[in-house]
């Protein structure tokens, strides 16, 4: 029963949870819901479902339920999709759930951020199994030998009809996986300006684009670009914040970044209290100038 199951909605998610799985010090298996299994992540059993698409939560939670039998721990990378499906699954299993795990204290004790990341709660699990969504930033991947993969079938019959799906990611890297992110806030006047200034520097760096809630609410940037407590949690090598004040809610999403650079014209902006490199300047001058230097 002391055994972990990793649910990987996309293949790369399994790799990023190997470090977490290792810390539980018990064998782990993986189900790849879509895509092919990457080799050598150290899983004892590897299941491949080969779905074209992950079905709505009601169907997927029911579909994986029987496969979760016999596991004490069921984990996925934290994402909107995993929260949608795993909370439903936890309930079907009658189990406990811990969202956004950032550290493992023992097999029944975890740490997770609350209150927009300003406080860390130590959570004791009182029920087996436990379902966990994990923020991979705190865990370094490890490798090991896998056994051959086995095919599994996951039924996907839902009472919900998917009418349409749109992905607005474009050609830029995914925010949650990007090595470099350039983000913009409220002062970027409109979507065209945002795209030119913030998007321009991001493209020069081969990075992703992020935004604050204020920018998203103003229609300057797309919803999927929101970084923070109620948006995406990111952990790039380099995070450049242009015209961002540094609210608690925004900081909640960027704390794990290696290097934070802030460009803000207000020397007292709170973002300077957390930025590794700060430049007091008008972003309309500074960002294009930086872009030009990087190009040269």
């Amino acid at each position: 029963m002391a055994r972990t199951l990793i649910l990987a909605f996309e293949p790369s998610e399994a790799v990023s949870l190997t470090g977490f799985a290792a810390q539980l010090q018990q064998p782990f298996d993986v189900i790849f819901l879509t895509g092919q299994a990457p080799a050598d992540i150290g899983a004892e059993r590897v299941f491949v479902a080969n779905l074209d698409q992950v079905a709505p939560a009601d169907a997927t939670a029911k579909g994986v339920l029987s496969l979760c039998e016999g596991y004490s721990h069921i984990a996925s990378v934290s994402s909107m999709r995993s929260k949608d499906i795993l909370a439903r699954l936890a309930s079907l299993l009658g189990g406990a759930m811990v969202t956004d795990v950032v550290s493992v204290e023992s097999n029944t004790v975890y740490k997770r951020p609350i209150l927009a990341g300003s406080v860390i709660a130590t959570v004791e699990v009182l029920q087996t199994p436990v379902v966990l969504t994990v923020r991979p930033a705190g865990f370094s991947p490890v490798s090991g030998n896998d056994s051959a993969s086995e095919a599994v079938t996951i039924s996907s019959e839902s009472v919900v009809t998917v009418v349409s799906q749109t992905s607005r990611g474009g050609l830029r890297p995914d925010l949650t996986r990007a090595k470099v992110i350039v983000s913009g806030g409220r002062p970027l006047k409109d979507s065209e300006t945002f795209e030119r200034i913030v998007g321009g520097l991001a493209d020069r760096l081969g990075g992703a684009v992020g935004a604050t809630r204020a920018a998203v609410d103003a229609g300057i940037a797309g919803n999927e670009l929101q970084v923070g407590q109620t948006g995406k949690i990111v952990a790039p090598e380099l995070y450049i914040a242009a015209g961002i004040s540094g609210s608690t809610q925004h900081m909640a999403g960027i704390k794990d970044s290696k290097l934070i650079v802030a460009i803000n014209k207000d020397p007292d902006a709170p973002i300077f209290q957390v930025a590794d490199l700060g430049l007091v300047a008008d972003l309309y001058d500074a960002v294009p100038a930086l872009q030009a230097l990087i190009g040269s």
Binding site: M97, V98, S118, T122, V123, E124, I260, V274, G278
Partner: peptide
């Protein structure tokens, strides 16, 4: 199913240069 046993302030990043 779970119980919070401890609350602590999140580590804050210190200002750089």
């Amino acid at each position: 199913r779970t119980r919070i046993t401890r609350y602590e302030l999140a580590p804050t990043r210190s200002a750089g240069v």
